[in-house]
């Protein structure tokens, strides 16, 4: 059984790296990982200088009680704050495409019609696909982790401490789990949708609901503000209406839970050095991510069981 699963998984891995569009999106993701450190570093340097200029201006005007420089004490990992947004924007879209291609490729080529005439069950086939997707995503996240780790050392000029390395590692592990959700969403719709374009657009609509609509309902933040890790940190319900909605919806708002956890680990906003405490504080969010992964894997296996192998050509 495992031999067949591994064979499907290996094939999945190889086939994805032959897809030009996947490679293109992967390059964008890797480039943004590199730029993320640079943007963070450049912005931090500039705001430091802007702060100094502001202090001079305030002193000239005779102002007292000048606020302290909070940028100077910001943790080294905080310059990676844009990675939270790039993972939830580019990474999740990349994951949807990985999941989509994984089965749609076989449907278009007609492989899904004939593969089960061989001695492989539907469960083995889909388990192999899911394992292949996990491997690809794990590789992407590992590359991203290494780039972030090396670039942050190059930019700051000193190595990360053990605690910082653990935090960065946990951040990328959580990010991997977050991406698996979207890959499974792409896979689920690739199996269950009758048309190729609907199979791609439906998970994108769900992605928009998760990324923009639910957070807007709980915080009244508009879509563009949700792309700035700093504005996300500053959100507090400013009326009874949003306090009630936040209490009801926020525990289920996937992207907000991910962004909060990511921000805590990278030290954006209030600084918490205790990694275990961060995990405990965000345990509900972690549980939500893991539950969704389980639910979507089950959904994909279930829809594979129901998949009509005699279907005519998949619609455009």
């Amino acid at each position: 059984m495992w031999k067949k699963i591994l064979s499907v998984s290996r094939n999945e891995f190889r086939a994805l790296f032959k897809e030009k569009t996947f490679i293109l999106l992967l390059i964008i993701f890797i480039l943004m990982t590199i730029f993320s450190t640079y943007i963070g570093w450049s912005t931090k340097n500039t705001i430091e200088k802007v702060y100094q200029e502001t202090v001079i201006k305030l002193k000239e005007s005779g102002a007292s009680g000048i606020p302290l420089d909070t940028f100077l004490i910001a943790p080294a990992l905080s310059i990676l704050k844009n990675m939270i947004v790039y993972i939830f924007l580019i990474g999740s879209l990349l994951a949807i495409i990985i999941g989509h291609f994984s089965f749609m490729r076989d449907r278009i080529a007609g492989i899904s019609k004939i593969v089960f005439s061989r001695t492989i069950s539907r469960k083995e086939f889909i388990t192999g696909k899911i394992t292949g997707i996990f491997n690809v995503l794990a590789l992407i996240i590992s590359v991203s982790f290494i780039i972030s780790y090396v670039s942050i050392i190059l930019v700051t000029g000193h190595p990360l401490s053990g605690n910082e390395t653990i935090k960065l590692l946990i951040f990328y592990l959580i990010s991997l789990a977050y991406l698996i959700i979207f890959a499974m969403l792409g896979l689920f719709f690739a199996i269950s949708s009758r048309s190729e374009s609907l199979a791609l657009v439906n998970p994108i609509i769900i992605w928009i609901i998760i990324s923009f609509v639910l957070p807007q309902l709980t915080s009244a933040l508009n879509p563009s503000a949700l792309l700035n890790p700093v504005s996300i940190q500053g959100v507090a319900p400013h009326s009874r209406f949003f306090t009630i909605i936040q209490e009801v919806i926020k525990p289920f708002s996937l992207s907000e839970n991910y962004k909060e956890l990511g921000s805590s680990l990278l030290g954006v906003g209030p600084i918490n050095t205790n990694t275990l405490q961060i995990i405990i504080n965000n345990s509900a969010g972690i549980l939500l991510i893991l539950s969704l992964i389980g639910l979507l894997i089950y959904g994909s296996i279930f829809s594979m069981k129901k998949f009509d192998v005699c279907e005519e050509e998949v619609d455009g």
Binding site: T43, I47, T54
Partner: peptide, 24 residues
Amino acid sequence: LIIPQIGDTMDPDNQIPGGFFKSM
């Protein structure tokens, strides 16, 4: 999403919730 996001997060005024200059 990406280009507007880069511009927005590079804005010095957006480095503090509510605005850097307002806080100062």
